[in-house]
Write a protein that binds this DNA or RNA. Sequence first.
DNA 1: ATTTGTTATCGTAATATTGCAATAAAAAAA
DNA 2: TTTTTTTATTGCAATATTACGATAACAAAT
Lengths: 109, 109
Amino acid sequence: MGLTKTEIFTDQQNSLSSLFKVLAHPARIAILQHIIDQKACICNDLVEELGLAQATISQHLKELKACGMIQGTIEGKSVCYCINEKTWKQFQEEFNVFFNQDVGMNKCC
Amino acid sequence: MGLTKTEIFTDQQNSLSSLFKVLAHPARIAILQHIIDQKACICNDLVEELGLAQATISQHLKELKACGMIQGTIEGKSVCYCINEKTWKQFQEEFNVFFNQDVGMNKCC
DNA sequence: ATTTGTTATCGTAATATTGCAATAAAAAAA
DNA sequence: TTTTTTTATTGCAATATTACGATAACAAAT
């Protein structure tokens, strides 16, 4: 086993949990915060800033890029990464919908 | 390797990513949604509803309980689970702080 | 006291994730 | 062209997560 049974869940449940998974690692949170603070950054900045190997940072960037949370543009020999505002706000909305569900009036507890 | 280097990140980054991790599985999203819809539920309801083994459901419930997102009270031979409103709103606030960061004015892209 | 119904825990197998060294790729500089 | 700088990819090794059968634990009912 060890295989998540995605087929028994709704698309909404699968996609929402995938979004959460992208943010479920401190390095990716740190990368996002650094990009937000500096308004942009290149891979090597993060390697120095975070103290993880270049290959590791590159992998995390790839995941963040894959879900659309960041985007990169080639600038000479380096790649400038920044937040994709549109996707960011879209995700924010999805999380809000989830958290704004009415959780009051429990039958127990 | 395969060991996340939590020591190189801030407490805030580690705790935020842990929160996201709890929600990073479709079964746990489905469990929360069912509890919210029904205002409460017992483990066996979820076993039937979701089609996962009882041991699996019990494990997911344990994780949701460990982070404080749900709470359970013993009712006869079963346990009634419900949302912990206080923790729920606390988490909502943490996510909001994260997402409400100003992501505009990129230097590239 | 025994059975029944419900949940938790243990052990284990399978899959996923993380981290990094090595190396490839690609563009600017020399 | 060769070197330098920067990023991406590949190929492991280690750890974490997921799922579930078996079984324990516990309370209510018989």
